[in-house]
């Protein structure tokens, strides 16, 4: 039920309230968190940022979920990318060595191929995702919503028992 609530909040945020930048920011940070293994220094920092910054948390949570699925599929690519970044670029070797010997740096697990690959991959994808999401929210608010509502799949989902049950329980709470 909590997931339906989050999705509902996410859809609501699309319609009104928070600015498209806040939604896109939340989604982008969530994407970065979801695409990397969580228990790293940067993962925890990003999670704190998601909580503290004035960005949409529901979008962030949905993005974590989606990015995790995406990360599972891209794991071999991230491994290869991370391996190349850590070992294949000679002028970076000295930097990695220095970083490895700084006390806090190993907590970032930067020397792990998947962590490095997914972090770099996430950073690169962050910009198109941020601007893409911003554009999507603006487009949604300016007429896309009505068109989407007419989609058969949306109607099927809306008419499903789970959604109806969720709406009932939500309404009880609000009365």
């Amino acid at each position: 039920m909590i997931w339906l609530k989050i999705i509902s909040k996410f859809i609501k945020a699309f319609r009104s309230g928070e600015s498209p930048g806040q939604i896109a920011g939340g989604f982008g940070v969530g994407f970065l968190i979801g695409i990397m293994p969580f228990w790293t220094l940067q993962g925890v920092i990003l999670f704190i940022l998601l909580i503290l910054l004035n960005i949409n948390m529901a979008a962030g949570t949905v993005a974590i979920l989606l990015a995790s699925l995406f990360a599972y599929l891209l794991d071999p690519t991230f491994h290869s990318l991370g391996y190349f970044i850590l070992t294949g670029i000679p002028f970076l070797r000295g930097f990695w060595e220095t970083l490895y010997n700084i006390p806090v740096a190993p907590l970032s697990r930067f020397n792990n191929t998947v962590v490095m690959g997914s972090f770099i991959g996430g950073l690169v994808l962050f910009i198109p995702i941020f601007f893409g999401m911003k554009k999507l929210v603006v487009a949604y608010r300016s007429g896309l919503e009505e068109r989407i509502k007419k989609w058969k799949i949306v109607q099927v989902i809306k008419g499903s028992k789970i959604v109806r049950l969720y709406e009932k329980t939500r309404d009880i709470g609000s009365e």
């Binding site: 990360a71 491994h79 962590v115």
Partner: peptide, 20 residues
């Protein structure tokens, strides 16, 4: 650190650097 071709999902490979 020779590349491991297929490490377990989400585990990756830890590259060792000279430790001071």
């Amino acid at each position: 650190s020779k590349k491991i071709q297929k490490p377990p999902r989400f585990k990756g490979q830890n590259i060792q650097f000279p430790f001071h």
